[in-house]
Design a protein around this nucleic acid. Structure first.
Length: 412
RNA sequence: GCCGCCAUCGUCUAGUGGUCUAGGACAUCACCUUCUCAAGGUGGAGAUCGCGGGUUCGACUCCCGCUGGCGGUACCA
């Protein structure tokens, strides 16, 4: 039975790296019909951050990768104390300055086969130092608490960041001291920023929640993250959660620290926007703009009209954030010349009898020819931006009356 | 410093001794389309597979060294 866990400490908001680790654990669990466990490691009382625990849960929820079981280490103190005593009694640990320390035996080799890259890693005991297992405040350190819990919770595979590699010999010693069989280990390379340094605020948003607030879609985020250090082979890139679960295997995890490339995420998000049907897109937009009455009012307008507009907008937005400027015009600041063009446009549109995109387009072309102007001028006049949804279509949708009225106000 | 991990286009990667004059995707450039901007289509440029030694009839693929990057070296996780 596969049982995996993520063990975040509530000392801050999880960043993309931690979140990807959670995703990989989730996919591995589901691929093997196993369990995905969340264990809050709140043993460092000094560094606990208010709201961090809630943020962890919120992120898993946002991504749709909820844990099957949840544990909190501060509620399991008895276990850690009990197990520390066993080590003390066996004389494998000792007390010093109010803390309990694990003694590293001499002339030993600690080695394991890491499932990332399927290679053997080993450390000599002379390179490992005695370490604290119970701090003087009575709380266990990560080393003791995680080993005890992983064993008690029947964790089969530990999939975690590779900053843990050099701690693994300590964990191996603990397993041996308790006469427990250690689980399998898979250490994931960290995700780096553009500068090849650890991902930081400079690289943009910090947590997936921030990306969500920037108008990135859950499915795109998931798809992009899974490809950071994992590849099922072949050229397939766009994958649904079901496909990821079906294809996910530890042997396909890369050994190289990937760099987070926002441009590719943005492209992929655009792909997902275009793949969505209008009903789903509308729902996503409604959620994203829930605080913006102008946009939600627009979205709640005539469904048929909205449908047409969504079709036009889909190929022009990479993130949901770009939707507003696409559909809600702003008042343009026109030069004298542009005002003249606006007047001509008004005149030409006014005489159209059969108001549709074809007649509107030919009117537009006449105006452009008369003024020897580029099409972008008309977009500036009507939308306030030099580009936008195709005018013939959107003016047809808006209706002659509304368009004329608006142009009159501008041209005066 | 010591210990460990890693090393293919700018980026994500395919590649497990010969099929590689190294494939795909993002980004980039050109063209097509065109009322603007996109989307889409076609094509181009872009990697002497970090460097140096081996092993082999033959190395991107195996071994060693070097260099570089990253991580660890806490009564933090």
């Amino acid at each position: 039975m596969v049982r995996v866990r993520i063990a975040p400490s509530p000392t801050g908001i999880p960043h993309i790296g931690n979140t990807r680790t959670a995703l990989f654990n989730y996919l591995f669990a589901k691929h093997n019909k196993g369990k995905f466990i969340l264990r809050i490691e709140d043993t460092d009382r000094k560094r606990i951050v208010q709201g961090a625990q809630e943020a962890i849960v919120e992120i898993l929820d946002f991504l749709g990768i909820p844990p099957d079981e949840t544990y909190i280490q501060s509620e399991r103190m008895d276990e850690y104390k009990k197990h520390a005593k066993i080590l003390l009694d066996k004389k494998l640990a000792y007390e010093k300055e109010g803390a309990v320390w694990m003694k590293i035996p001499e002339n030993q080799i600690f080695s394991w086969t890491d499932l990332v890259g399927n290679k053997s890693i080993s450390f000599k005991s002379q390179d490992v130092e005695d370490f604290v297992i119970i701090k003087s405040d009575g709380f266990p350190t990560y080393h003791l608490a995680s080993v005890v819990d992983d064993h008690l919770m029947n964790i089969s595979h530990i999939i975690r960041g590779d900053e843990w590699i050099s701690s693994t010999p300590k964990h191996l010693l603990l397993y041996k001291s308790f006469s427990w069989t250690p689980p399998f280990f898979a250490h994931l390379p960290v995700i780096l920023g553009k500068d090849k340094k650890k991902l930081s605020k400079r690289d943009g948003a910090e947590s997936v929640l921030d990306y969500g607030n920037e108008g990135y879609l859950r499915d795109a985020l998931l798809n992009f993250m899974v490809l950071l250090g994992w590849n099922p082979g072949g050229d397939k890139e766009i994958m649904s959660m079901e496909e990821m679960i079906r294809l996910f295997e530890l042997k396909d995890i890369g050994t190289v620290a990937p760099i987070f490339d926002l441009q590719k995420l943005t492209w992929m998000n655009g792909e997902y926007v275009r793949m969505m049907d209008n009903k789903k897109l509308k729902a996503s937009l409604l959620e994203f703009y829930s605080q913006d009455k102008d946009v939600t009012d627009f979205l709640k307008g005539d469904p048929k009209t909205l449908d047409l507009i969504l079709d036009l907008a889909k190929t022009r937005m990479k993130t949901l954030k770009e939707f507003k400027d696409l559909v809600l015009p702003k008042i343009p600041e026109l030069s004298e010349e542009e005002r003249g063009i606006a007047k001509t446009l008004l005149k030409k549109l006014l005489v159209i009898k059969n108001w549709n995109k074809t007649t509107i387009l030919s009117a537009m072309k006449e105006v452009l020819a008369m003024h020897k102007a580029k099409g972008s001028v008309l977009y500036k006049i009507i939308t306030g931006f030099e580009k936008g949804l195709p005018l013939p279509e959107s003016l047809e949708i808006a209706g002659k009356e509304k368009v004329i009225e608006m142009l009159k106000r501008l041209a005066i």
